[in-house]
Structures are given as C-alpha cells and as structure tokens.
Amino acid sequence: MSERRFTLITGRTTKQGRSIHLGKEATEYLEEISTLQMNPKDVEALQLKDGEQVRLKTPYGSTVVKFKKGDIPQGLIFVAYGGFINSLVGPDTQATGMPNTKGIEVEVERYG
C-alpha cells in the first residue's frame, strides 16, 4: 500500500456554506465535508480508484474520507471546513488561541 505525505488545506466552499442550512446531519452537508480533493497526478501515484476511500493521519489522530480529483497543486489536498478534519488537528495554539487548521502535514493512504 502506497503512502505519502501531503499538506492539508481547509476552507469554506459554496456547497458547504449552502448545505449547512439543511442541518449538520443532512446528507448534502456530510457529503461535502467528507470529500477530499487531490491533484490527478497524486491520485495516480497513490493508485487510487474512483469510489475508494483514503485514510488521513497526523500525530493527533486519523480520519477516513472519500476523494475526488481536483484543480489543486501536487502535494496539497483540500477538505471543506467541517467535523471530519477535527481529529487531525492538534490542540496547541502557540499561545495565539488558534489551533493550526491550515497547512497541516498529513499522511495519506488508501483505505480498505
């Protein structure tokens, strides 16, 4: 099983912003916040196939998400703001009050 280190970016998306009004249990919302975007070349390198899931791991925890090809530079992955990435983020704020939710180093591997 291939495994690689990526930089995880999080942010708002239109879908996430819209579907949140349907409720945090709504399928549309959960779908959007549990899907990772990855450069097609990285997808190829990891030998991922459509419909498969990936596991993201940091020293703080891990989570399993779907993936899709996206317009994003190689080496970066993107997940919309939401509960799925919470387990990857550490509690240290370096005395700023803000946990580091942007540019986190994560390991990505095919799941299942």
Binding site: G61, Y81, G82, N86, S87, G90, P91
Partner: peptide, 10 residues
C-alpha cells in the same frame, strides 16, 4: 457549534 468545529482533544 464548538464540538462540530474544534480539534478532537478540545
């Protein structure tokens, strides 16, 4: 929503 947005430890 604190629980929904906070790192797991928090």
């Amino acid at each position: 929503d604190a629980i929904g947005n906070f790192p797991a430890k928090m």
